[in-house]
């Protein structure tokens, strides 16, 4: 919980800096690129996470790996994380940054789960429907769970729209169990 709070503060600072310079999308792209590279090269991630390696060496590794791929501002931010020994929070910071950016752009992330894959047409219709419901731009992610039997289950943050057969059966079960 504390690390989440720390990550949120760093993400807020980076967001304000990017907002001030008008490079929100570029910064997000940089962070996404850094995350992808770290996932693709676990050794680099291990080097950054290793406390016995000096900060200078970590900075050198970051420069070698990212200097020609991300902007200098983002590179400086990574060096700052190394200096503050917070580089291990990079994934959380990226997520917090993306959340802030979505909020800034009035975008809500919706996860739609259905028993069968949604067609592109259905996805578009669902996105428009959810936008009408929430008044926000919807970034739709889909997932398939045959256990739902039928219908769609949509989660937007803490809000859940459950139109699945499984959900209905569960609610019916709760009603039956609540009967005296």
């Amino acid at each position: 919980m504390r690390e989440e709070s720390v990550a949120r503060r760093y993400a807020d600072a980076l967001f304000l800096q990017a907002q001030r310079t008008g490079t929100l999308n570029e910064t997000q792209a940089d962070l996404t690129k850094v995350a992808e590279i770290l996932v693709a090269t676990p050794k680099l991630a291990m080097v950054l996470a290793q406390p016995l390696i000096t900060q200078q060496n970590k900075k050198g590794a970051i420069k070698t790996a990212f200097a020609d791929k991300i902007r200098p501002t983002t590179l400086g931010f990574l060096n700052l994380l190394v200096d503050k020994r917070r580089i291990q929070l990079l994934a959380e910071i990226e997520q917090e940054f993306i959340n802030r950016l979505r909020l800034f752009n009035n975008i809500a992330l919706a996860t739609a789960t259905s028993a069968i894959p949604l067609s592109p047409t259905e996805q578009e219709a669902l996105r428009r429907s959810l936008e009408a419901r929430t008044g926000k731009n919807i970034e739709l992610k889909t997932a398939v769970d045959p256990e739902l039997i039928g219908g769609v289950h949509v989660r937007i943050g803490d809000t859940v729209f459950d139109g699945t057969v499984r959900g209905n059966l569960e609610r019916l079960r709760e009603r039956l169990l609540a009967l005296r």
Binding site: S114, S129, A132, G150, V152, F161, N168, R171
Partner: peptide
């Protein structure tokens, strides 16, 4: 699959305008 698509369409179309209360339980189950 037809029934699945129908349920999905029902979900998309029926809830398009309003955000029903918590008691407005979805009844898309055929």
């Amino acid at each position: 699959e037809n029934r699945q698509r129908q349920l999905i369409d029902n979900f998309i179309t029926s809830g398009g305008g309003s955000l029903g209360p918590a008691s407005a339980v979805a009844t898309a189950t055929p």
